[in-house]
Amino acid sequence: MNKSNKFSPEVKERAVRLVQEHRGEYSSLWAAVESIAPKIGCVPQTLLEWVKRAEIDVGERPGTTTAEAQRMKDLERENKELRRANDILRTASAFFAQAELDRKLKS
């Protein structure tokens, strides 16, 4: 699933900052999000996710930070590439070993 980035990082940061700055003026986080989301031009659920992600990234909420998630993704990609390279090397090694055996038998 490919997400389009309709909002720039600057807009997201500004929206999160607005929620955090005005949070005390509302009865709940959701009330603040519902009030500010239309001003940014996004749905409240999206803004709430941005706020939660920002809180996780600064350590105010438990969870995997954006940096940790990216590092895991990079390591998984590298692991997949290394496994593929090992398979190729294993296949090539078997091929050349068989070729060497065939050559010895023909002599």
Rank of each mutant, 00 (worst) to 15 (best):
K52T: 08
D74G: 04
S27N: 09
L18A: 06
D57F: 01
M1Q: 11
E49T: 07
S35V: 05
L29F: 08
E81D: 15
S93M: 10
Q45P: 05
E100F: 04
A69N: 01
E25H: 09
A54L: 06
R61D: 00
L47E: 04
V58P: 01
A97S: 12
E49W: 01
T66K: 04
E13P: 03
Q45S: 14
F7Q: 11
Q98P: 04
P38W: 03
V16H: 02
V33E: 01
R77V: 06
K80T: 11
A99G: 11
E13M: 14
N86Q: 06
E60S: 08
D102W: 06
E34T: 05
Q45T: 14
C42D: 03
E78D: 14
V16L: 01
V33K: 01
G59P: 03
R83N: 10
S35E: 13
N79D: 03
I36Q: 05
K80S: 12
R84K: 11
F96M: 15
E25S: 12
K12V: 15
P44Y: 09
I88V: 14
R53V: 06
K104I: 13
A32M: 02
T65A: 04
T91Y: 00
H22I: 03
R103F: 06
E78C: 06
N86G: 01
R53D: 08
A99I: 10
V19A: 05
E13I: 08
S27K: 15
R84G: 07
E68G: 00
K6F: 13
L82C: 12
K39S: 09
A92R: 13
T64M: 06
Q20A: 06
L48C: 05
L75N: 12
K39V: 07
A67T: 10
H22K: 15
E68F: 00
L47M: 08
Q70N: 05
E76W: 07
K104Y: 03
A67R: 11
R77S: 12
A54D: 15
K3C: 02
P44W: 09
Q20K: 08
N79L: 13
P9K: 07
H22L: 13
N79F: 10
R23M: 10
L29A: 09
R23P: 03
N2H: 06
D102F: 07
P9E: 09
K3T: 10
L101T: 13
V19W: 02
F96H: 15
R77M: 06
Q45F: 04
L29E: 13
Q70L: 11
A99C: 13
Q70M: 09
S35A: 14
K106E: 11
R17N: 03
G41R: 11
A85C: 03
E49Y: 04
A94Y: 01
L75C: 07
F7G: 08
T64L: 05
S8H: 13
M1D: 11
P38M: 05
K104S: 04
G24A: 14
A99R: 14
I40L: 09
A32D: 01
R84M: 08
E34Y: 00
P44H: 07
A97N: 15
